[in-house]
């Protein structure tokens, strides 16, 4: 990669300081980068720290959460220590975000037009008329043909899919370099999911954005992502290009995730499961965080958390099963 990364995250740590002195290490030392035009998927179960990672990049972590350490570089600029005012110029303008629940993500008391023009007027200094025209253009771009009418409508008058299109229109309105989509289709009907993902992909190509796609749907990953990062317990446990990861997953957790998917070309009686649930972030096991659920658990796993291997630049894994690759 000779190109400068759009986003580079180094050793990001976001902790939640709970009552009784407990600390939830929701995001614990993750590093990754996203190149221009690249789609990177962040995969993991609920509670693995995906959304918190995204919100940390946006610096939208609420109390009692806090970014404890690490460095976030956006297009070569270190934005880690940007203050609230500086961040308002980044959010929506350089990094845009789409959320999981289109039903609640739009403000119920303002019209769609108001909510779209607001963002372009802020970041692009457009006049009222320019913003209005731009908003209609955006709505048409995301496939809402009744754009003029929708401008005057309120969120509750639109369906979930339409609202998510509005969210996409809003996200692309200021031509951001990075789009973060946090489970953008989880709350939608299956038939709408593909449409929304295709639309996002199309917009990504058209506006030359990088895309960080947060999902727990491996099917989505295989179709849209270039590279995949698997998160577990606030850490990245495996990272590879999408083909490599799907063909030869190394980490037992990734293997478990893939086994739990139905495959057209595989004839199995029973889909695989991963026993247990993600441990709460304030109560990770010592050693490897997956050790309590891992089918290949070894003595070493209980005492020592493996580090992410870097010997193979294309395929990183955090597991004691691959000792040659782990730097101690």
């Amino acid at each position: 990669m000779t190109q400068q990364a759009v986003l580079q995250v180094d050793n990001l740590k976001t902790y939640f300081h709970l009552e009784e002195g407990k600390t939830a290490k929701a995001v614990d030392d993750i590093s990754f980068k996203i190149s221009p035009g690249e789609t990177v998927a962040l995969v993991g179960e609920s509670g693995s720290g995906k959304s918190i990672s995204a919100l940390s990049i946006m610096q939208l972590i609420n109390k009692p959460g806090r970014i404890e350490g690490g460095k976030i570089t956006l297009n070569g600029k270190d934005i880690t220590n940007y203050n609230a005012k500086q961040m308002t110029k980044i959010r929506g303008n350089d990094i845009a975000m789409i959320f999981q629940e289109p039903m609640t993500a739009l403000n119920p008391v303002f019209t769609i037009g108001n909510q779209i023009t607001e963002i372009v007027r802020k970041h692009k200094n457009m006049s009222r008329q320019e913003a209005h025209r731009h908003a209609i253009h955006l709505l048409k771009l995301v496939g809402l043909s009744r754009a003029e009418e929708i401008m005057k409508e309120f969120p509750h008058q639109l369906s979930g899919g339409m609202r998510q299109r509005v969210m996409i229109a809003m996200a692309i309105s200021c031509d951001p370099m990075l789009l973060i989509a946090d489970e953008p289709t989880t709350a939608l009907d299956v038939t709408i999911q593909a449409q929304i993902l295709d639309l996002m992909n199309e917009m990504k190509e058209r506006f030359q954005m990088a895309l960080l796609l947060i999902t727990h749907d491996v099917g989505v990953v295989s179709q849209y992502a270039d590279r995949v990062m698997v998160m577990y317990g606030g850490q990245i446990v495996e990272e590879a290009t999408v083909d490599v990861l799907l063909e030869s997953p190394k980490h037992p957790y990734t293997q478990g995730l893939l086994d739990s998917l139905p495959m057209v070309d595989k004839d199995v009686n029973r889909l695989g499961t991963i026993k247990g649930t993600v441990p709460p972030a304030y109560d990770f096991p010592s050693g490897c965080r997956f050790s309590t659920r891992c089918p290949h658990v070894m003595e070493k796993c209980h005492s020592q958390n493996p580090s992410l291997s870097t010997s193979d630049s294309e395929h990183h894994v955090r597991c004691h099963l691959y000792p040659s690759e782990v730097k101690e």
């Binding site: 110029k89 959010r91 929506g92 609640t104 993500a105 739009l106 963002i119 802020k122 970041h123 809003m170």
Partner: peptide, 18 residues
């Protein structure tokens, strides 16, 4: 303040006053 649409507004870059 804890609702999703406030998070959206913040993610759009709206300042605290707005």
């Amino acid at each position: 303040l804890g609702s999703d649409y406030i998070r959206t507004a913040k993610a759009k870059g709206m300042n605290d006053r707005n």
